[in-house]
């Protein structure tokens, strides 16, 4: 069990507070910059604009630098950094449903990735851009956000079970 700077009793109290403040800062800056990950790839492909894409690539590099920094400062909190060296090249960080074998999680990376990109480019923005546009008064983006809220209940109640059962029936169970 990883231990962070705050002890567990304080951490469970501070989780909503810290994430709320973090979210307000990110929402403010995202509204200022028009930040969008899908938009970055789209603008680069269509117009060779690199402004938005630089934001997404910086996120990858900066998160790596940030995790490296806090791995030096608080090694207990970064238990499995650098993941590929400690847990295996093809093992994903937990988060996807079910206990399936490695091939299933590779499929879980590629197929949803492709369709997230496809759908998001048609509606003109990734989840954070839609959320910020909803806060700017865009009703279409607000309906996207409502769809995400309904989708999260649907996923937990129904869809995750379906997906795991499907992958098991295809022979990817453990």
């Amino acid at each position: 069990m990883a231990t962070g700077i705050l002890p567990r009793e304080a951490a469970i109290f501070f989780v909503p507070l810290v994430t709320l403040l973090l979210g307000i800062l990110i929402g403010y800056l995202a509204q200022r910059s028009g930040y969008c990950s899908i938009g970055g790839f789209r603008d680069y492909f269509l117009f060779r604009h690199t402004r938005l894409l630089s934001g997404y690539l910086t996120l990858i590099v900066a998160s790596c630098a940030g995790y490296l920094l806090f791995w030096f400062l608080t090694p207990d909190a970064m238990e499995h950094f650098f993941w590929a060296l400690k847990s295996g090249v093809a093992t994903p960080i937990p988060g996807a449903p079910g206990s399936l074998d490695t091939t299933a999680y590779l499929i879980f990376s590629i197929v949803p990735g492709f369709f997230v990109g496809l759908i998001a480019v048609f509606i003109g923005g990734c989840p954070i851009r839609q959320t910020v546009m909803a806060s700017e008064g865009n009703y279409k983006a607000a309906w996207f956000f409502v769809g995400m809220c309904v989708g999260s209940v649907l996923f937990a109640a129904i869809v995750s079970g379906w997906v795991v059962a499907l992958m098991r029936s295809l022979g990817f169970g453990v």
Binding site: G4, V18, L22, S33, G34, Y35, A62, A65, L69
Partner: peptide, 22 residues
């Protein structure tokens, strides 16, 4: 956008260092 990318990256690492005990 690159400034926000750097902000999210560093602060996400910081929030993990702070809150992972939960």
């Amino acid at each position: 956008p690159a400034f926000l990318g750097a902000t999210i990256g560093i602060l996400a690492a910081f929030s993990q260092a702070l809150l992972i005990s939960a």
